[in-house]
Design a protein around this nucleic acid. Structure first.
Lengths: 235, 235
DNA sequence: AAAATAATTGTCATTTTTACAATTATATTT
DNA sequence: AAATATAATTGTAAAAATGACAATTATTTT
């Protein structure tokens, strides 16, 4: 039988950068590592590729094991393959980038799996090259969200315009004009205004909106332009 | 010493989708496979990850071995990890996406390495999942080129506006209005008009342009908008 | 000198973007 | 009950970008 000789074999892992949004701040989900080395230190959620799955499946499995969620927005981010990135054994890791509605299990995970939501602007030093992974994920999030309506993946079924704007402002860390923002967002036709108001955040209350699911799915890859002067973000 | 037990080890490979442009058509560079199985069949340029290199280096090495070129535009495209993608042994492959100036070695490679440039619209069936890789690379090229000025990587130092437009029309397979195209491209400030003309393509001759290297490097990630109605491309 | 060929250039209507502030709805306080 | 405080909602005008459209120019060939 044919074999590829004289080639190294190594471990292939996946690590998930999981973003959430609580209505105010952007969060990332981290876990306390359960195995040596670095046991007990904070890290991304990860695991090894199994014999009968591809990487996409492995990433879904890892995320599902932790959160119980399936059908989560997830995309391949980048490979991390420095020969010394894992001191134990040579491992190539594929980083995946996930966006979830934080409300769907804010509670359980914390206790069950030594998992915790951290503020994206203040989280602990992580093992290996996981901090680099997060940096790259943040850059991808900024890039992608400037062009495509992916941030809705972070929101619950009903959300208000001020919440949505908070989210965008959190991602880009700069203020956006309310009038221009609502005009642009509404002009996409992706939002359906509800009659109900969210009275939690203000006296007047803000109207809830829902996503127009059909249009959303169709226009998922469309190039929007919600952020003013997107050039300045990337240059 | 700590080890990750009960995890599978496997081969990690890289495959390069190499694009070129001859002034008229888009091309991809393919090689005749040198090892069993499928020896003699056409495939992408590829190789295995070595002990002391990361994937980026491996991709550069593979490309350099074939073409002699370094400093080539190359980016990670996507992983391909179906458990049965390579019938010999389980192999995860990272596909890389490269853009080169075809003139830099149009001749040598063909003879030296059983390599050949194929028209992007007409090339042979490839081994394994390499056709899928090319499909994804084409999609990435269309996406990226609609937003960023990467197509200049395919052109020689001096090029004409009609050549540039041919390139864009080749990538998107549709005609672009000459007046609007030149206005948009020139408004980027990335092109420097030369006094010399290319008289090969027409009686009148077309002025050569060069890239404004500094602006190009600075604006490399800027979001341009050269293609009319970019939405229609992705939706 | 005329014809053929491809490159180059311009205008106008429409749409999009940006900058900027007043008004409205409601709860709380006086 | 009236005034106040707070945040949500709404509008307008100038500037820039886009898209649709055709005439002119430079050169070689006939």
């Amino acid at each position: 039988m044919t074999r590829y000789t004289h080639q190294i074999k190594l471990l292939v892992a996946i690590d998930c950068i999981i973003f959430g949004f609580n209505g105010r701040e952007l969060k990332i989900l981290l876990v306390q590592r359960g195995l040596e080395p670095e046991k007990g230190k904070w890290s991304l959620v990860g695991g090894f590729l199994k014999p009968d799955e591809d990487l996409q499946k492995a990433a879904s499995r890892v995320l599902n094991d932790l959160t119980g969620l399936s059908d989560v927005y997830m995309e391949e981010l980048h490979s991390f393959s420095n020969p010394k990135r894992d001191p134990v054994e040579r491992t190539v890791s594929l980083a995946y980038f996930a966006l979830i509605d934080i409300h769907k299990y804010e509670k359980q995970i914390t206790t069950d799996h030594h998992a915790e939501w951290f503020d994206l602007n203040k989280f602990p030093k992580l093992i290996f090259d996981h901090n680099q992974m997060i940096e790259r994920a943040k850059a991808r999030l900024q890039y992608k969200a400037a062009l495509h309506p992916i941030l809705f993946e972070l929101l619950p079924a009903k959300f208000t315009l001020p919440q949505l704007q908070n989210l965008y402002e959190g991602v880009y860390k700069n203020a956006i004009d309310k009038r221009n923002f609502s005009r642009k967002v509404l002009s996409t036709g992706l939002l359906i205004k509800q009659n109900e108001k969210d009275k939690a955040g203000s006296k007047k209350g803000a109207y809830y909106y829902k996503l127009h699911k059909k249009k959303y799915n169709v226009n998922f890859n469309a190039v929007l332009n919600i952020i003013p002067n997107p050039d300045k973000i990337f240059s």
